[in-house]
Simulated assay, not measured.
Amino acid sequence: MDGKLCDGWVYSLSGQTLCFTGKVLIDDEWVIRKDCASIAQQRGADWKSDFSRKITVFVHGDLANQTVTDAHREYSKKLVRAAWERDRGYHVCVVDGDGFADLICGTPARCRELQRAQGAGDHVLVLPQAGDGILGGPLQRHAVGHHDSGALTLDLAHLDKGTEAHESTIAALIEYLSRQHIELRAHARNAPRFDAGWSRNGDVFVAEVKSLTGASEDQQIRLGIGQVLDYAHQLQLARTYGRIRPVLVLEKQPTDPRWTSLAEASGILLTWAPGFAGC
């Protein structure tokens, strides 16, 4: 990162210089600093035992899944140094144990926001964010491939149209939310595999995206409703930060208006391109 302000994400361990606390909580297992360093080096990173301006990523692993009011969120002296450097215009990315585990697995990690505790200049707090443990890195539209002609031309054409419509809907949702300065996100590594998610005003929106091209509209909507209800139920049982809002996003307005009232009665936001009402 060479001290420059990041975009809120650490995308890879490769080329980074890390500094660790004494041990790091990785997926509910404590891992000592030496082993963390070895794992990081295997993925192209360097590490230093002491904090300096060579450090690009500070890993404070005992912060995972704690609330901001927890006294254990007070950072070590190394993290106070990271905050001090930030105050002076040198940005050091800070990730927790979950973020380090994400980077080990090749997925982006959130760079944590820091705040000094009131009345305690030597104490720094991490700010929890809506979607912690639920939302992963920025969501990107995927390229859609096409199949050669042959005996299955008709079925594969329908499949491709459905996939194209699905990705086009996601692309339109990315653009729509970006105009509100909201980032569309993928699911977190250990979260249910929903299609897209975002946060706003403390709420976490968990969405399934359904195309209606070349498929039974009723079947697609029924499937989507079941999926988002399942995702929301799983997340409500887990320890997460932020109210869960299940969303079913459709390629276009459904033919039958009954789906809107059914979704509303089930606590689901039903919306569709291009207007994405309610999002």
Rank of each mutant, 00 (worst) to 15 (best):
K4V: 13
C6V: 06
C6Y: 06
V10C: 07
L13Y: 07
Q16V: 04
T17M: 10
F20T: 00
G22P: 07
K23T: 12
K23Y: 14
V24F: 10
D35M: 10
S38Q: 15
A40H: 08
Q41K: 15
Q42V: 08
R43M: 11
G44I: 06
W47F: 15
R53F: 04
R53E: 14
F58S: 03
V59P: 00
H60L: 05
D62N: 12
N65S: 12
T69Q: 12
T69F: 12
A71H: 12
Y75D: 09
S76N: 11
V80L: 09
R81H: 08
A83Q: 08
E85H: 14
D87C: 12
R88Q: 15
G89R: 10
Y90C: 09
H91K: 03
H91V: 02
V92D: 03
V92K: 02
D98C: 03
A109T: 00
C111Y: 04
R112K: 15
L114Q: 11
R116M: 09
A117Q: 13
G119S: 11
G121Q: 04
V126E: 13
P128I: 04
P128C: 09
A130C: 07
G133A: 02
G133S: 01
I134S: 00
G136V: 02
L139A: 09
L139D: 02
L139G: 01
Q140N: 10
R141V: 00
A143T: 14
H146F: 11
D148Q: 14
D148R: 11
A157E: 09
A157L: 08
D160P: 03
D160V: 07
K161P: 00
G162R: 05
G162T: 06
G162Y: 08
T163N: 09
E164H: 13
A165M: 05
A165W: 05
H166Y: 11
T169D: 06
T169M: 03
I170E: 07
E175R: 09
I182L: 15
E183F: 03
L184G: 01
A186V: 01
A188F: 04
A188I: 00
A188Y: 04
R189Q: 07
R189G: 09
N190F: 05
R193N: 11
W198L: 08
N201I: 02
D203M: 11
V204L: 09
V206I: 10
A207S: 14
E208C: 10
V209D: 02
V209K: 00
S211L: 00
L212N: 02
T213E: 03
A215Q: 07
A215W: 01
S216Q: 04
R222H: 11
G224T: 05
Q227K: 06
V228E: 05
D230A: 14
Q234E: 15
Q234M: 14
Q236F: 07
Q236H: 12
L237R: 15
R239M: 08
G242F: 12
R245I: 05
R245N: 13
L248Q: 05
L250D: 09
E251M: 03
Q253A: 11
W259G: 06
T260L: 14
A265L: 07
G267I: 01
L269I: 12
P274K: 13
F276L: 05
F276V: 08
A277L: 08
A277Y: 05
C279W: 02
C279F: 01
